[in-house]
Design a protein around this nucleic acid. Sequence first.
DNA 1: TCACTAGTTGACGTGCGCGTAAGTTAAACG
DNA 2: CGTTTAACTTACGCGCACGTCAACTAGTGA
Lengths: 132, 132
Amino acid sequence: MTEDLMTIREMCDAFEVTPRTLRFYEAKELLFPIRQGTRRLFTRRDRARLKLILRGKRFGFSLEEIRQLLDLYDIGDHQVTQLSKTYELATQRLADMERQRAELDEAIVELKEQLAWGKQQLDSLTSTEAAQ
Amino acid sequence: MTEDLMTIREMCDAFEVTPRTLRFYEAKELLFPIRQGTRRLFTRRDRARLKLILRGKRFGFSLEEIRQLLDLYDIGDHQVTQLSKTYELATQRLADMERQRAELDEAIVELKEQLAWGKQQLDSLTSTEAAQ
DNA sequence: TCACTAGTTGACGTGCGCGTAAGTTAAACG
DNA sequence: CGTTTAACTTACGCGCACGTCAACTAGTGA
């Protein structure tokens, strides 16, 4: 029965990252693999966090920002003061993300327009060439 | 009558960037200010490009990716081969952005759930404190 | 004319997010 | 038992996107 724990290699294969990356994230306190002697064993929690880390990166968040966001998942460990600070942070982050989505929507529309225009140009150029 | 041209300082104030940033973007061929002697004068075109550059950055694109995207706006300068390559690039980029938007939507939903849960925890903790 | 201001060109420095050896250790296999 | 294999630590390197001097220049106002 394969335990709920994964070696660094299994993690790398599962998430398409390098060992260096996982060790780096541990050093930055984004992951907390347990140790079997010297070797790292990654838990279910580490995998959940890594998934969120990679997503956060795709959104352009820094690792430090991601680290703070991840703390929302570890609420039990915190005092009320810290918790409410984290709550505020997450609320702001949500607002950021919704703003980002609105902007992304706008950018998509504009890019589509450009594409339509570009296609027209392309068509007219190739038909001109054919005529020569 | 203030010309359609802006000094580097006016640009910096308008877009909240540093002079260094604008010179850097010029060096990377993202902007093409004209020269009055040694000084840079930024055109309407530069401003349009800078707006897109800053937006692209917020989406996590690298300056090199942004440079290639910007070329879509300068289609007249290119050969057909180059144009169709640019067109393909933009099409792919659009797909990327739509994927990113879908993921962002999902992340927003999840973050909202976490927030609701966090709020509950926060409420129960503070009411417990009040009871003590 | 002299000082001041705004802008310029190098050139080196910095923080982030890892990549990449180099050398060590520990478990596993024949 | 030696040896391969996988993982480990330490540490320097690198590309990106600028920051930060230093030294120079070109107009501007008193």
